[in-house]
Design a protein around this nucleic acid. Sequence first.
DNA 1: CGCTCCATTGATCTCGATCAAAGTCCGTGG
DNA 2: CCACGGACTTTGATCGAGATCAATGGAGCG
Lengths: 235, 235
Amino acid sequence: MQLRACHDDFARSAPRSPHHRPEQNLQKLRTTVACAKGQEICPPDCLNAYWWQVETGAARKVLLLPSGQRCIMEFFFPGDFFACHTYGCADIVVEAICEGTVLGRYKRVDIERLTREDSNIARMLRHADVCAAFHMETHILNLWHQRSIDKLLAFLTQIQKRQRRNEFISLPMGRQDIADYLGLSVETVSRALTELKEHGILEFDGTRKLKIAPQAYDFLSLPTNANSNQLMTAA
Amino acid sequence: MQLRACHDDFARSAPRSPHHRPEQNLQKLRTTVACAKGQEICPPDCLNAYWWQVETGAARKVLLLPSGQRCIMEFFFPGDFFACHTYGCADIVVEAICEGTVLGRYKRVDIERLTREDSNIARMLRHADVCAAFHMETHILNLWHQRSIDKLLAFLTQIQKRQRRNEFISLPMGRQDIADYLGLSVETVSRALTELKEHGILEFDGTRKLKIAPQAYDFLSLPTNANSNQLMTAA
DNA sequence: CGCTCCATTGATCTCGATCAAAGTCCGTGG
DNA sequence: CCACGGACTTTGATCGAGATCAATGGAGCG
């Protein structure tokens, strides 16, 4: 039920990026892919050949380590425009998180040819790169924090910003995904969330919907560690 | 003595980037800045106004947290071309690591105007961005590892690749800088290095010069965690 | 109703942070 | 040339946070 609710949330949400409304000639190049939950959005070898945009649902970019661990490099939400420039040869997969995730895609050669003709499209891709860099910096900061509740709170704040509705945050991903993103164990994620709930910092509506209380900003300043949010907002 | 040796190494080393030899019209825009050890390369408010390139020495990009902690986001070595796109409003400083670090710089408006005329320069900046993204991904992976020796070994492998001489690695930065980059304490960095030395994984020549033994690749596979290097090489 | 997946809770142990103290290296000035 | 001072590095001891192992709790689904 929670899951279903969460799916609906993401299914209903419209893309939010200022650059998401593609031009006419961009539309012609666009093809659409629908994915089941957990499914890769395309075979690994052709991932690099496209630019992608999430229409509905959510996706994760996973780095598969030889040990079997899964390092999640990035989450993608509706409207997000992305390509996997680097890591061409590493074990990278992009998977749908929600049931019925839909992505649009453009052949890289096509869209990059268009770039030379249409400066709007060039700007759009450039904007996507800057966003990606920005998300990576935030991710680095997330991982840099030592305390698990700092990581969690910074992460949730980030997600909230990206969803940009001030009420409840909907988490499309499960606890395991959060753990794999933050370099923690599932149990620690769960415990940290419970602790934050008990301190009144988080208010839950089921497992995948929550609200961050304003006092969160005070809370993070007390302990030995940083008050991460000031950074998050500054960033 | 160790320090001096390290300085010399970096002072003597020529830039290595394939794009470092600037065009004629680029040369005209270039100005040069020399910094003492630990000094900021420019006032914080004009950091964003330039593109930078390390000539000799080394630099670090530091995120100053409200708690007083210093999160090092990136190291820069001779030849590295960089700008600080994001984090415009956060407390970012770039500081020289070595005594007598020299950087070249270009006004951003100037170089970005040139971009429109000269596609080589456009490609050069684009290449710098891709490198930066690549380094960030590597950094994320570094931080993601749980065990300190994994972090250290992954870090050192990365530095080795960037210095690109196969013999000894010269570390321009001190232990504290490594700690601030990897989200560890100085003591842990030191202990991890000693442990790796005692296992014959690392061979030291003073505190700032070392060599990674080939067995390092075996070593990392045994423990519960990942063999990070396979990733590092793949990346 | 039972199955499966996911989330939570508990108990234990390990690794890294922290506090504290040497030890090392280097530059400086006598 | 040698002694002192300061920054950096290493080592030791203790403590706590998170990983790990194990079990329970819930929700959706056949």
